[in-house]
Design a protein around this nucleic acid. Structure first.
Lengths: 213, 213
DNA sequence: AGAGGGAACATAACAACGTTATGATAATCC
DNA sequence: GGATTATCATAACGTTGTTATGTTCCCTCT
């Protein structure tokens, strides 16, 4: 049977690129399918044949966002000081989020009413999250921080980083960038401090951390 | 000059009530002006005369959200153990957010494209935030935690609480509620721990904390 | 090589949205 | 009590995401 014209990957790339620029310039409200198609030099139907609709296009942008975040975290060099590496990961997390803030909001906020990504997005997130988890594990293995469930510590750090970044992106933090910078650093430092040489408060009341689960 | 029919406060209350229910049931995407008006037994124009448009209606809901959050934090009893009070404030924060999650998203996320609240919303937020800041101040004054800028510590806690809550509301945390509960508690505890008897890492490199600024 | 088929894209229309005229109504001031 | 003025119902406008319809191109089979 005839297979017809193949998926135009180049056009797809142009579309999500145009969508990204439009998202950055006009915000989520200005991200209209017509405008995206127009900016890419095609018609709205391309969005539907290539992505299945606006939601599919958003999912692609969502995955692109996690690719960027994952690349930013992966770019943090691994030294023999895992605690310092963890701090750098935290800083890289914020930098990546601020650099493409609209994609970050698309990933962790709900800027578009009907949009919620499927399991594919979750997989992309896990991949981006991996360096964080690995670094915490290295911290524990090297004895830099006390014996605890790495996933819990990583989640603690993630929660703090995401919370501060989300507050910053929504304008809740001081206007001065340097002040926000120092604020973020000190919170990160303090949270790191609370794990060095401290016993796990949950030790004993929690099943043993499953290394492979 | 004749003043015409006065503002119908009861209808306004019915409208934001209906809007709240619709937001909870149909999510931000289903929050249409027509449906809100229909649910309140009026026409779309009431939204425009009473609130000036959808954005004004959202601002009212936004303020309602902060009223609830502020009430939840204010309901936490003040004991002679400010550190425990701080923990309770953290728990109350999450409980309030989970109880009216759509309002919380309206407050701290961007579920509706064009909506961003004005200075009135900021004032409501400050009022809700006050108990948190006061409790941190009590912690410092009583010597429960080391001498630091109260605003910075409060912001640290806020960032953590907001981050974890935001991750939870977006489905990034474990599915089991009890697990999420324990996770949140332990993160809160650890963050509290890192301030007891620790020197401020910024001490000396930062201007003296302005108590009235 | 040339006919057939199927997918990709262009055009145009649809339903629903926020918003804005326009008119009727009811309450207030002189 | 009449004039005025803001409130609300009705209906229309522009824009949104989406879908029907047609055209075009590429791939496959003979």
């Amino acid at each position: 049977m005839a297979r017809g014209r193949a998926h135009d990957d180049e056009l797809a790339a142009q579309l999500i690129d145009a969508a990204g620029q439009l998202l950055a310039s006009a915000g989520p409200g200005g991200l209209a399918v017509r405008r995206v198609a127009e900016a890419a030099g095609t018609s709205t139907m391309a969005v539907y044949t290539l992505f299945g609709g606006k939601e599919g296009m958003l999912t692609s942008m969502y995955e692109e966002g996690f690719r960027r975040l994952g690349a930013a975290l992966l770019a943090v060099p691994v030294t023999d000081n895992p605690l310092a590496d963890l701090h750098q990961l935290g800083l890289a997390y914020r930098q990546s989020a601020l650099a493409s803030r609209h994609l970050y909001e698309l990933m962790f906020s709900h800027p578009v009413p009907g949009f919620s990504p499927g399991p594919a997005g979750r997989a992309a997130a896990d991949a981006a999250y991996a360096p964080m988890l690995a670094c915490v594990t290295r911290c524990i293995e090297s004895g830099a921080i006390s014996q605890t469930d790495p996933a819990r510590v990583a989640l603690h750090l993630w929660g703090l980083a995401h919370g501060l970044v989300a507050l910053e992106l929504n304008g809740w933090l001081p206007e001065d960038l340097a002040t926000r910078d120092a604020l973020y650093r000190s919170c990160l430092t303090m949270t790191g401090i609370c794990y060095v040489g401290r016993p796990d408060p949950d030790a004993g009341s929690r099943p043993a951390p499953a290394p492979d689960g």
